[in-house]
């Protein structure tokens, strides 16, 4: 299965709310679905679902009605960091990778009848990168087109903290997609603003910036966000220090995400839909 047709399996943490019939366990009852419990006919006067066996067995002659779990549709949102640091190109192009993931999410949502929305943020929420949650099929190609023509221009991702306002009141499954190259306090502010939602942090990384560093040489490193640059004399000792620092940062980031619900998923080099599905179903 290639990524052009791959879908991602996901499952919201809580039971879904809402009115649209869908694929996820809902909070309400009714309709066909998985058996939930019995209630008295007085509580739910629905003669179609009277459980004759239980009613006849009951010595107090109460009439029982079977209740079924309602399957409901949910809304998925991807909140995407569009700051300049996402322009990094190493083993893969980060923006292409994120586009691929969003298209895949749109496709998966459509197949399950869920709505998918996309909020792009750089220094603020980008109006031209805003797709409110929809169920129609055209969304997938629209998102693909938008990503294909987009080049990140702004220096920071402060807009991530404002994205919550665009999500609406009901609890949603939110994919927070970023490289999280920002102070931990800012990450925490974003997580706090999204606290009522089911947030799946997805850390976009690249082995070229993480593990596949050169062990000897001179690199004039240019900061994609600020444009500042610094010459680094790479050597085994410095590489070790660099890797240790990166691991430390990664650990504290993971710890932060964990305290807000879910561990992060590492989207590194390429999108593996199966791995992401497993991560979503496990956590």
């Amino acid at each position: 299965m290639t990524n052009a047709t791959a879908t991602i399996s996901y499952r919201p943490r809580q039971r879904a709310e809402g009115v649209v019939i869908g694929a996820h366990r809902g909070r309400g009852t009714g309709g066909p679905g998985v058996f939930l419990d019995h209630v008295s006919y007085l509580h739910q006067p629905d003669p179609r679902r009277i459980d004759l066996r239980l009613t006849l067995r009951d010595p107090f002659e109460t009439i029982y009605v079977r209740r079924y779990e309602q399957r409901l549709a949910i809304a998925l949102y991807a909140i995407v960091d569009l700051s300049r640091s996402m322009r990094f190109e190493g083993t893969a192009r980060k923006m292409a990778l994120v586009g691929e993931l969003c298209v895949c999410l749109a496709r998966s949502a459509h197949e399950l009848g869920d709505a998918f929305g996309l909020i792009g943020c750089d220094a603020r929420v980008c109006d031209d990168f805003l797709f409110p949650a929809r169920r129609d099929r055209g969304l997938e190609s629209e998102v693909a087109r938008r990503f294909a023509s987009f080049v990140p221009e702004r220096a920071n991702a402060d807009g991530l903290a404002d994205a919550a306002a665009y999500l609406g009141g009901k609890r949603k499954l939110v994919f927070l997609i970023s490289d999280f190259r920002m102070p931990l306090a800012k990450v925490e502010a974003v997580l706090q603003s999204l606290a009522r939602h089911d947030v799946v942090p997805i850390v976009v990384s690249d082995s070229a910036e993480e593990t596949a560093l050169p062990s000897l040489g001179l690199i004039d490193v240019r900061d994609l966000e600020t444009g500042r640059h610094r010459v680094v004399f790479m050597r085994p000792a410095l590489r070790r220090r660099w890797l240790a620092q990166a691991a430390e940062w990664r650990r504290s980031l993971a710890q932060l995400f964990q305290s807000y619900g879910r561990p992060p998923f590492e989207l590194s080099d390429r999108l593996d839909a199966y791995e992401l599905s497993r991560h979503l179903l496990e956590t």
Binding site: R222, H229, Q245
Partner: peptide
């Protein structure tokens, strides 16, 4: 003007500060 070919990186914060590098630069 830059003397070396520049390599883009998401952020300089992740690059360890290093005295020999500064001197060499």
């Amino acid at each position: 003007a830059p003397t070396l070919r520049r390599a883009s990186f998401p952020t300089l914060d992740a690059v360890p500060k290093d005295l020999p590098s500064s001197l060499l630069s």
